[in-house]
Amino acid sequence: MSNINELFGKELKVINMGLDSFGDDLKEQNIKTVQMRWRPPAGGSKKMMSLLSKLK
């Protein structure tokens, strides 16, 4: 617990993965936030993911 408290006592620099809105909330509180560009493999296409998995 004490380590966590120590962390939040410092300046936070956040990498946000997933929904942009989580990062946006932090930005509104003036916390340095970088949004990681992420998307599911092959845009989520099951057909393409299946083809790719055959090549691994």
Partner: peptide
């Protein structure tokens, strides 16, 4: 995507996948 599919089909014919 079409090229990837053709590539996998080619390997399937050769029995590699």
């Amino acid at each position: 995507e079409d090229a990837l599919q053709a590539f996998v089909e080619m390997l399937e014919k050769e029995g590699l996948v």
